[in-house]
Design a protein around this nucleic acid. Structure first.
Length: 273
DNA sequence: CCCGGAACCTGAAGGC
DNA sequence: TGCCTTCAGGTTCCGG
């Protein structure tokens, strides 16, 4: 599942091949994917535009266009973006952007959950997101202030995109393990020391995953088709039943807010101390 | 405001 | 072997 490290990897991989390229053709095979505007207007307004920059906000990719408009893509569960040179048939290609150097950007998405927008102002789509966890402006104090407002389980707050942007199920579990915090602890009950550990653990986990070019657990592929390797460093995510790398206790899996949650019952005790 | 649950989707995995 | 059910989880929406 593409989370912040996967989307950041896609952004970096695509930048060199996309910036400065003109979009000369657009095909949409799954119209429901286009949120704004209508699929017809989407194709028409996009054609002829040059991509001037590629940004990321949370799990959203933002293509800056020379008209001042932005193309925004969210890959959701199973989406990937592939930059290819041939027009090979792919039953899961939901949209294809043909570029002026004859390359093609293919939006591939088995489950059809991915979405796109073409808008004048990116804030209309990403305006409600919380801070970027890797931003220099994001501090422990800021983090603490946000956690204090939530009585919900810390796992749920980490997944709340309006609280902090870009964290999904895998990296939420990894961050909580890194900090030694039980995922069901209430966010507002965490001590300053725990918040500090979670803050640094979260940033370390995300940075390391970016260095590994993301985690290929299911559909995720880099734009050239390669896999990421971050999944091989997972300590608890998707590790149910395996021994904890720190203490050997079997990793448990519970459900919090309808999300599978993996943790070590010994390294992440429910009652602190 | 908060929470649970369903919806959107389909391939993979599990049960019998 | 094969059919049927359940699961996976990012986001939004609806009802209590």
């Amino acid at each position: 599942m593409p989370e912040l490290p996967e989307v950041e990897t896609i952004r970096r991989d695509l930048s060199a091949g996309l910036i400065g390229r003109k979009i000369v053709g657009v095909t949409v095979n799954w119209p429901k994917m286009v949120q704004i505007p209508s699929p017809e207007a989407f194709k028409q307004r996009l054609t002829g535009q040059t991509i001037s920059a590629l940004d990321r906000r949370g799990k959203y990719l933002i293509f800056q266009l020379d008209s001042g408009e932005v193309l925004i893509i969210h890959l959701r569960m199973s989406g990937s973006l592939l930059l290819v040179r041939d027009a090979e048939a792919d039953r899961y290609a939901r949209a294809v952007f043909v570029l002026d150097d004859d390359s093609r950007l293919v939006f591939r998405d088995t489950r059809k959950l991915g979405v796109m927008w073409l808008v004048e102002d990116a804030e209309a789509v990403v305006g409600k997101l919380g801070p970027e966890p890797l931003d220099d402006a994001f501090t422990t104090r800021d983090f603490a202030g946000r956690l204090r407002r939530h009585k919900a389980p810390i796992k749920a707050v980490l997944l709340d995109q309006s609280a902090i942007a870009g964290i999904g199920n895998m990296y939420a579990d990894e961050s909580l393990f890194a900090a030694g915090i039980h995922p069901r602890r209430r966010a507002c009950d965490l001590s300053n020391d725990e918040i500090q550990r979670l803050f640094s653990g979260l940033r370390r986990v995300l940075k390391q995953a970016i260095e590994c070019c993301g985690a290929s657990v299911s559909d995720y592929r880099r734009p050239g088709g390669a896999r990421g390797t971050a999944q091989s460093a997972f300590r608890v995510a998707h590790q149910k039943g395996k021994p904890c790398p720190q203490c050997g206790t079997p990793i448990e899996r519970i459900v919090i807010r309808q999300r599978g949650t993996c943790f070590c019952p010994r390294c992440q005790p429910e009652d602190k101390r």
